[in-house]
């Protein structure tokens, strides 16, 4: 179990848990990022923050501090469903 913020660019992970009480997580859930979903860290911004992640066929940027609370499982048999590049 790893915080999303520690993923390396190009690495996949399966979302293990998020905190539905937080505004950021509510936003991400509305975009379709739900527990069990596979995501990929595409890149970090040139200054190291924010991050660009890919899930559900879309690329979304979020800040490092907010990604720390999203826990992903990197050992799960990812990629189950390789997210399609938009």
């Amino acid at each position: 179990m790893t915080p999303l913020s520690q993923l390396l660019p190009g690495q996949f992970g399966k979302l293990a848990s998020l905190n539905p009480e937080r505004g950021v997580d509510q936003r991400l859930m509305a975009l379709g990022l739900l527990p069990g979903m596979v995501l990929k860290l595409i890149r970090k911004a040139p200054l190291g923050d924010p991050l660009a992640i890919e899930f559900c066929g879309q690329v979304v940027s979020l800040r490092l501090a907010e990604a720390e609370n999203l826990i992903v499982d990197v050992s799960a048999d990812c990629p189950i469903q390789r997210p399609r590049q938009p």
Partner: peptide, 12 residues
Amino acid sequence: VKPQPFVLELPR
């Protein structure tokens, strides 16, 4: 005002 999380779609 409560700040909005900076979640931003990078569209096609």
